[in-house]
Design a protein around this nucleic acid. Structure first.
Lengths: 229, 229
DNA sequence: TATGTATAATAGTAATACTATCAAAAAAGT
DNA sequence: ACTTTTTTGATAGTATTACTATTATACATA
């Protein structure tokens, strides 16, 4: 799809809408690259401003601080992935096949080759999300930020997947728990394969192994309760 | 067990052994409380020093920076949990029962009631690990720190659990991946139950639901391949 | 032409994350 | 008991971070 899609976030992690201006779009595209390069802790608005030939103060007009910028990026990622999963499963009838395909798309998000938006490199964003997304909710402000709706995109996506699980087996008691575990594991196994290989059987960047592991685990869990009845 | 155990870390995340001196032990016990209270980002060595009636410079003689202190705490936690799991499963013969018990102990680590070391409150440490442990490896220094052995305690624990899985089903192809996923999920479900409840069926602090979810998932995954043969 | 809006340039502040120095206190060795 | 070493406390200082504020200019719009 060469179509440019527009992703609407359901909350105000930003001060000014970054999609609306040239500077805003530069902030998004360059922050993704810079966080990927430096890691989130070493990333600063000053470095970002220098990189895009602007000033610290200008960046602060778009985002209150770098944490909110990360919230924005991660939310955008979940909304994009949700859209991508729906796109790749729309013509699949059986819920089993749809869930299987969803697991593939989620795991291979780092190989995505259809840019949805010109100024966002989804592959790099995927790396950023794998490495940094847990920092979005692991703060003392989770509850306040949750109230502000900062995690709605993940919640909606998780709920969508949970409904597919329930289509397969309406009696399965933990669909949301299983799907959050799956989403997290898809990232974790990739990260471990690259950095802490003794913690997983998955090798290097071989997505197929993660997919194999996740599918087997998910379907075993969902199907077992089916047999129980 | 009222016995005081000594946990030996296999690496030097510290500059001076904190267990060896009064000040070192105060640093450990008070940092756990303070990180729990403030969150890791707002926690500083200056605040810690004030809290224990010492100085910033003195704290820096034990740990290079707050990140290494967190590495120490998390490593200690994994070594302690490994020990605790072995302690609670030593007389259990069947590997299925041993794995089931291990999952219970891991999930209920936040209720642990036998202090292994006087100056460490394992319940508070558990909260800190749930909220902050992912920050230990999600940095640009992972590979260097991995080389330095900073993650050995988790690796050993994971490997121990993987071997139990293989005892149940030697043909199961992803024992390490399954156990890291389980360890992570045990934390994640607890965190979500408390802060983002729509992401899980687990309610509040009800450990039993997390245990139910994890046991069903793990045994379904491990057993399915058993049937396949 | 007037008016609002976005940006750049500059300056400044409080807090953080350290490092260095030195003297006093405590512990260890003989 | 005396010396030596180690550990701590006190103090000071630096570079960087994470901001906020002010003003001038450019640019778009009505």
């Amino acid at each position: 799809m060469a179509t440019t899609i527009h992703i609407n976030l359901k909350h105000q992690s930003y001060l000014r809408e970054p999609e609306a201006t040239e500077l805003g779009r530069k902030i998004i595209s360059e922050s993704i690259k810079l966080i990927d390069e430096l890691g989130f802790e070493a990333f600063t608005f000053k470095k970002l401003a220098t990189e895009i030939g602007s000033t610290e103060a200008s960046v602060y007009r778009y985002f209150e601080n770098k944490h909110k910028l990360l919230v924005y990026l991660v939310s955008w990622y979940w909304a994009w992935l949700h859209y991508t999963v729906i796109f790749h499963t729309q013509n699949i009838e059986g819920p089993r096949e749809r869930l299987a395909r969803a697991i593939e798309v989620i795991t291979k998000a780092g190989e995505a080759d259809d840019p949805a938006v010109v100024y966002i490199d989804e592959r790099v964003l995927h790396r950023v999300v794998v490495a940094e997304s847990s920092k979005v909710h692991h703060t003392k402000e989770v509850d306040a930020e949750n109230k502000a709706g900062y995690f709605l995109e993940l919640k909606h996506f998780c709920h969508y997947l949970a409904l597919v699980v329930l289509e397969i087996n309406p009696a399965y008691p933990y669909p949301h728990a299983l799907m959050t575990t799956t989403l997290e594991a898809a990232h974790q196994q990739l990260f471990f394969a690259q950095h802490l290989p003794s913690l997983t059987e998955v090798k290097g960047e071989r997505y197929s192994e993660t997919i194999g592991f996740l599918k087997q685990m998910v379907f075993a869990a969902v199907d077992q309760h089916l047999n129980d009845r």
